[in-house]
Simulated assay, not measured.
Amino acid sequence: MATIFYARVSTADQNIEHQQAQAETAGFKIDRVVADHGVSGVSTLFAERPNGKRLFDILREGDTLLVRWVDRLGRNYSDVRDTIQEFMRRGVVVRTVINGLTFDGATKDPMQQAVRDALIGFLAATAQANAEAIKEAQRSGIAHAKAKDGETKYRGRKPSFTRDQFATVCNMLDLSTGVGEIAAATGLSRQTIYRIRDDRAAAEATLASWAA
Rank of each mutant, 00 (worst) to 15 (best):
E48H: 07
K153V: 14
T162F: 10
D13T: 07
I196Q: 01
G150K: 11
R75I: 05
L119T: 09
P159F: 08
L66D: 00
A2F: 05
Q85S: 10
E61N: 06
E204V: 12
A106W: 05
Q20E: 14
Y154A: 15
Q22H: 11
D71Q: 05
T83M: 04
P110H: 07
A129E: 15
R95D: 01
G38L: 01
M1I: 07
Q191I: 07
I196L: 04
R116W: 04
Y194F: 12
T168Y: 09
R54T: 07
I58W: 03
E151M: 14
G38H: 01
E61R: 06
V169S: 05
Q22A: 14
A12H: 13
R68Y: 08
T64L: 01
K148V: 14
D36K: 00
A114T: 11
A47R: 13
N99M: 12
R190I: 10
R68T: 10
F166K: 08
A143I: 11
D199F: 08
E17S: 13
Q20F: 14
S176V: 11
G156Y: 09
V34H: 03
R81F: 13
T25P: 06
V179L: 10
A125S: 15
D174Y: 11
G187A: 05
K158T: 14
A208C: 09
A12F: 11
N171Q: 13
I4L: 05
D164E: 15
A184K: 09
F122T: 14
D199V: 09
G100M: 05
T3V: 10
L173S: 06
A202Y: 06
A167H: 10
F5E: 03
R90L: 06
T186D: 03
V94P: 00
T3Y: 02
R54Y: 04
L173Q: 04
A167L: 10
V67W: 00
T96M: 01
L66S: 00
A23V: 02
F87H: 02
G150D: 11
A2S: 11
E136L: 15
R60Q: 08
T64M: 01
S10F: 09
A23S: 03
T206G: 15
I58Q: 04
A131L: 10
Q113V: 06
M172P: 06
N51F: 02
K29N: 05
F103I: 02
R8W: 06
Y154S: 15
T107E: 07
R163S: 14
T186F: 03
L45A: 10
Q128V: 11
A211S: 14
R195G: 08
C170F: 13
D174I: 11
Y194H: 10
E132K: 15
F56N: 00
T11L: 13
Y194M: 10
R197Y: 05
G74C: 03
D63E: 00
Q14F: 07
S160C: 12
K158P: 09
Q20A: 13
Q128P: 11
L65G: 00
M111R: 12
A167S: 12
D174T: 09
N171R: 12
D109V: 03
R197D: 04
T152N: 11
V9I: 13
A202P: 06
S10V: 08
D63I: 02
